[in-house]
Amino acid sequence: MSRLDSMLRRLAAQRDGLNWAARDISDLPGEVLDLGLGNGRTYDHLREILPDRRIRVIDRILQCHPSCTPPAEDFLQGEAEPMLNLLLEEGVRFALAHYDFGSGIKEQDVAEAARLSPLIARLMVPGGLIVSGQPLVGLPRIAGPDTIAPDRYLFYRA
């Protein structure tokens, strides 16, 4: 499969997974957490499908498209672990989290996801969903929508 086809498949899985998760959490309290802003496409999509939810974003640097810039009070700039700990201290809880951190070096990305998994789990409301491009540990993995190949995108229930 070409890299272009792989990217298209990943983006379609991401969109389908987020749309499915947004429907699933409709009765749950809590905010939304986007881990990895990048250029802001996913954040923009989350704003569209969850217009009544506060969306917090964590990333090392703010370098998104200007139309996708989160409000300053919702953007936590820095390394993920201290930012997640700050949210824990504030008592914030999430109904949905999207995990999209990655350097492109699989071993490093998997290790970072494993290290951050317990913090993410502690931030979730019971029954909340985590949609992830990386495997997480210590959370029950569930099947996502039928339109997504089982290992293309991963889904976890808090």
Score class of each variant (00 low, 15 high):
residue 140 P to D: 03
residue 90 E to G: 01
residue 81 E to P: 10
residue 6 S to A: 13
residue 120 I to V: 01
residue 72 A to P: 13
residue 138 G to Y: 05
residue 53 R to I: 11
residue 24 D to K: 07
residue 19 N to M: 12
residue 7 M to G: 13
residue 28 L to S: 12
residue 108 Q to M: 10
residue 7 M to Q: 11
residue 125 V to M: 05
residue 106 K to E: 10
residue 17 G to E: 01
residue 126 P to L: 08
residue 127 G to R: 04
residue 57 V to A: 11
residue 59 D to F: 03
residue 62 L to E: 06
residue 103 S to P: 15
residue 75 F to T: 04
residue 98 H to D: 07
residue 129 L to T: 05
residue 139 L to C: 09
residue 136 L to E: 05
residue 16 D to Q: 09
residue 94 F to G: 04
residue 56 R to S: 08
residue 61 I to P: 13
residue 18 L to E: 02
residue 44 D to I: 08
residue 49 I to R: 12
residue 26 S to W: 12
residue 130 I to N: 01
residue 85 N to K: 06
residue 93 R to C: 11
residue 87 L to A: 09
residue 81 E to Y: 11
residue 19 N to S: 12
residue 15 R to W: 10
residue 69 T to M: 09
residue 127 G to W: 00
residue 51 P to F: 14
residue 100 D to T: 03
residue 58 I to R: 02
residue 125 V to W: 01
residue 108 Q to L: 13
residue 22 A to I: 01
residue 50 L to D: 12
residue 33 L to T: 05
residue 114 A to P: 00
residue 103 S to K: 08
residue 13 A to Q: 11
residue 43 Y to D: 09
residue 25 I to R: 00
residue 97 A to F: 04
residue 92 V to Q: 04
residue 18 L to R: 02
residue 92 V to I: 05
residue 41 R to D: 05
residue 55 I to D: 02
residue 37 L to H: 04
residue 76 L to I: 04
residue 13 A to L: 14
residue 64 C to Q: 15
residue 76 L to T: 01
residue 116 L to K: 03
residue 60 R to A: 06
residue 76 L to S: 01
residue 113 A to C: 07
residue 19 N to D: 15
residue 31 E to N: 11
residue 34 D to N: 14
residue 22 A to E: 00
residue 137 V to W: 08
residue 106 K to A: 13
residue 68 C to V: 15
residue 138 G to V: 03
residue 120 I to A: 06
residue 82 P to R: 08
residue 68 C to G: 10
residue 38 G to A: 05
residue 69 T to Y: 08
residue 7 M to L: 14
residue 35 L to G: 10
residue 111 A to L: 04
residue 30 G to F: 02
residue 137 V to I: 06
residue 92 V to M: 02
residue 55 I to E: 01
residue 45 H to C: 09
residue 59 D to H: 03
residue 33 L to D: 01
residue 24 D to F: 12
residue 67 S to H: 06
residue 17 G to Y: 00
residue 5 D to F: 15
residue 91 G to V: 09
residue 72 A to V: 14
residue 64 C to T: 09
residue 51 P to S: 13
residue 128 G to D: 08
residue 32 V to G: 00
residue 122 R to Y: 00
residue 84 L to D: 04
residue 140 P to K: 03
residue 85 N to H: 08
residue 80 A to K: 06
residue 36 G to S: 00
residue 96 L to E: 03
residue 107 E to M: 14
residue 109 D to Q: 10
residue 58 I to G: 01
residue 109 D to G: 06
residue 103 S to D: 14
residue 138 G to H: 07
residue 123 L to D: 05
residue 81 E to Q: 11
residue 133 G to T: 15
